[in-house]
């Protein structure tokens, strides 16, 4: 990857995504043996197409939770329209931005469909983006992250950082 693409990425990526990404690079998380259950939001507070950022399964793995307009594969909620994904592009690790039902990478323009299992419908990423397994507590509306399907970019294993 040339230096300019790195610079271009810095110019075009939203400030919030950048903060989330760069602020975590020095964090040392303890090795986890299995996927933790982590409360990441409440369905009653989610606004359509306004993603909520969180880290999972550890502090070095940025993800988002989003309520979209249609039924999704692997979504929770009465409309099955709440889904969650890693926001590291599986191609070369650039941050993904949510817009119009998809995750877009501004480094090489891979795009992933959040309604259809995170499939790369355009671009270079040969691996679909990792999807976060969700559990909805119907009584409280709380949403929990409880697993990851697919490999998070830049890891030999999702739970194998030292």
């Amino acid at each position: 990857m040339s230096d300019i693409s790195r610079r271009k990425f810095l110019q075009t990526t939203s400030a919030s995504a950048l903060l989330l990404f760069s602020g975590l690079s020095n964090t040392q998380a303890a090795p986890a043996k299995s996927y933790p259950s982590k409360k990441i939001g409440n369905i009653r507070n989610l606004k359509p197409n306004e993603p909520l950022a969180f880290n999972y399964p550890d502090e070095q793995s940025p993800c988002l939770l989003v309520k979209v307009d249609n039924e999704t594969i692997g979504g929770v909620g009465p409309q099955k329209n709440v889904v969650s994904f890693s926001t590291l592009c599986t191609h070369m690790g650039c941050p993904l931005t949510y817009s119009k039902g998809r995750l877009v990478c501004k480094c090489h323009y891979s795009m992933f469909d959040v309604s259809r299992n995170g499939q790369t419908f355009q671009g270079l990423a040969s691996q679909w983006v990792a999807q976060i397994v969700l559990r909805l507590d119907a009584a409280t509306g709380n949403i929990y992250a409880e697993g990851v399907e697919g490999l998070i970019y830049g890891r030999i294993g999702n739970l194998k950082l030292s």
Partner: peptide
Amino acid sequence: DLSQQNQLLSGFSYTETM
């Protein structure tokens, strides 16, 4: 060094499909 989170655009990629 595979013990650390790989940084973006490092030039090394090892994905499920590889």
